[in-house]
Design a protein around this nucleic acid. Sequence first.
DNA 1: GTGCCTTTGAAGGGT
DNA 2: ACCCTTCAAAGGCAC
Length: 478
Amino acid sequence: MPQLDSGGGGAGGGDDLGAPDELLAFQDEGEEQDDKIRDSAAGPERDLAELKSSLVNESEGAAGGAGIPGAGAGALGEAEALGREHAAQRLFPDKLPEPLEDGLKAPECTSGMYKETVYSAFNLLMHYPPPSGAGQHPQPQPPLHKANQPPHGVPQLSLYEHFNSPHPTPAPADISQKQVHRPLQTPDLSGFYSLTSGSMGQLPHTVSWFTHPSLMLGSSVPGHPAAIPHPAIVPPSGKQELQSFDRNLKTQAESKAEKEAKKPTIKKPLNAFMLYMKEMRAKVIAECTLKESAAINQILGRRWHALSREEQAKYYELARKERQLHMQLYPGWSARDNYGKKKRRSREKHQESTTDPGSPKKCRARFGLNQQTDWCGPCRRKKKCIRYLPGEGRCPSPVPSDDSALGCPGSPAPQDSPSYHLLPRFPTELLASPAEPAPTSPGLSTALSLPTPGPPQAPRSTLQSTQVQQQESQRQVA
DNA sequence: GTGCCTTTGAAGGGT
DNA sequence: ACCCTTCAAAGGCAC
């Protein structure tokens, strides 16, 4: 992310917040977190550490009251005291923290995004009423896919939102099969991610991950109420629920394959822009009376570029915390795990592009269209096939001050931006809000100040592509 | 019912 | 190191 160059003078937040620097910061998270904890900085990391510490001790107490062995007992003991104190305070707060989203949706509240710590909502999990068997030996739990599945249509919460939500969605029992393949330290945690000693070592500065409240609250943990789901865990879609007698008839291989199919998907943590979109989508929809996400996302993309560094920094920081939390929750998870789950198009697409004459690339080649920008009329469904030419890369996109500056030095001019070729699909009159002649927000005004639809600027556009565009425009009008 | 569209960022594999 | 691909959210739309 080039928008955020180094050298920001902000205290504490003056680090580079772009993606590469995020990584650096993330890699140093352990020390940073440790320092924050020690330095008593009132930040989310401290809350997390405190809560984790308190939960660790709760867990250990439940396991027999064994103290913390080893040299780290002292430090953890302090954290324990702190954590218990905080936990006790938060177990009976006068007022529950407001859902983050409410704050985010109000522009005037965005500055206080971190006033309520990211992980403070962990405490909310403690408010879940314990099951009847709480405190007793864990009983086999029925599959929670049905019972605890979020209502259909309920948008998935980000980690941040989830742990700040007063009504976090319940968890599926088998959060992931991954932990099944890992050496389990305790069968009680089989429903969750176990933390092996190796994975412990991966988190030297954090309390063992199974002390995370969402895990501690698992039904398998004595004394803890019902399992709380992780928002990134999504039960597999489809009708995989089988009757138990059916399962018994399955062969082992089948059941294995079935387990694979039933494996809940652990979603990727949201990046900064995704978090921004989640927050601003409703606002844009309200302002523009648009609902089509593709158009909304175009606007949001422009507004994202129009954001100041400080504003973007909030989301980069939020995304960093999401990734951090995600990493702690799922130490062995890889984004690769979800490859092919959304769409199995990698190989198919590859095959298609090499064999199917009707595929976008082939089609464009046949008609002499620009692979990046030209419309692909002959394609049946694709209006724009290739977004980026190999080697051209993405627009470095320094933060533009206005719409005209959306083009970047050394990059295609705005009118060559692929988005502009979507104008026939999302005409200006549609992107503009008829209910609001004058946009209320500057960002929106820049976002909506789209160029009028027209053929791409020469010399990139060929006559053919122009004709295709015109046809496309006529088709849209019709 | 399924996949596409559209955006940016992150991550992993390949070269 | 760089490039490419995929996925993350969202909801209308096309097939």
